[in-house]
């Protein structure tokens, strides 16, 4: 088990040495980069908005229902909703969800290219296939993830606002006062910095699993699942380390 993990890590490092090289043709690379930003990033916006809206609303409801002590000010609901969204949800939880969507997309796409010999075709042409296929995905997704993170923060807070506006649980003024209270700008940067690492983990780990698929469509499915599981675990591990480093 340990030796196998070390072997896999070594293979992953070797894979990265192939990926992180100067592209053969910069104009082709930039075209791929734009396409990947659109496919992996822009296409994820609806999912991010829907999930953030609902989770923001749910957090707001739960905070209102659970903060019942007269000693705790009512604006704490907005404050707690904001802190949860900024510190954990819009970065870590959102990336765990995106690991499922984007990670499986990358692993299955590259895995299918492998089993249908498209990667071999590139290798035979003399193209560095790992660099050509994977580098635009890693850079594209890592560049776009701050946008998704900020959108998630905004729509999460908006979800809470909807609860304040359309229910009698709390007033909009109290909620807005809460989300403005004791605001620490660094928490936004902290969330964004974390997502950069998570985006790199999601894209590179999924690409690694897809690139080394052997066999047929069944193995592509397995690789896709393994990619999501591995990247989720690594995101959680990185979350602990980054939180310790960035918030201490």
């Amino acid at each position: 088990m340990i030796i196998s993990s070390i072997n896999t890590f070594g293979k992953y490092c070797r894979f990265l040495t192939q990926v992180f090289r100067a592209p053969d043709k910069w104009n082709v690379f930039f075209k791929s980069l734009v396409a990947e930003i659109y496919k992996l990033g822009v296409d994820s916006i609806p999912l991010v908005i829907i999930i953030s809206l609902f989770i923001g609303a749910v957090i707001c409801i739960q905070m209102t229902l659970n903060i019942v002590s007269p000693l705790i000010p009512s604006y704490s609901t907005g404050l707690a909703t904001r802190e949860i969204l900024l510190l954990e949800f819009s970065s870590s939880m959102m990336c765990l969800i995106l690991a499922g969507k984007v990670g499986s997309n990358i692993a299955s796409e590259i895995g299918t290219m492998r089993v249908t010999e498209q990667i071999d075709a590139m290798d035979i042409m003399g193209i560095n296939s790992a660099n050509f296929i994977v580098l635009p995905k890693i850079i594209g997704f890592t560049l776009f993830i701050p946008v998704l993170c900020v959108l998630s923060m905004f729509f999460g807070l908006l979800g809470g606002w909807f609860i304040a506006e359309f229910t009698s649980m709390l007033t909009v003024e109290t909620y807005v006062y809460g989300i403005q209270s004791f605001f620490n700008e660094w928490y936004v940067w902290y969330g964004i910095i974390k997502t950069l690492f998570f985006a790199y983990i999601i894209s590179s780990v999924a690409a690694f699993y897809g690139y080394y698929v052997k066999g047929g469509s069944l193995e592509v499915g397995k690789a896709s699942t393994n990619a999501v599981v591995a990247s989720s675990i690594l995101i959680l591990l990185a979350d602990v380390i980054l939180t310790k480093l960035l918030l201490q």
Binding site: T112, T116, E117, Q118, D120, A121, I124, M125
Partner: peptide
């Protein structure tokens, strides 16, 4: 130049 069994065209 290489012609693969499954053609290996880019989808």
């Amino acid at each position: 130049g290489m012609l693969f069994q499954g053609s290996a065209l880019f989808d």
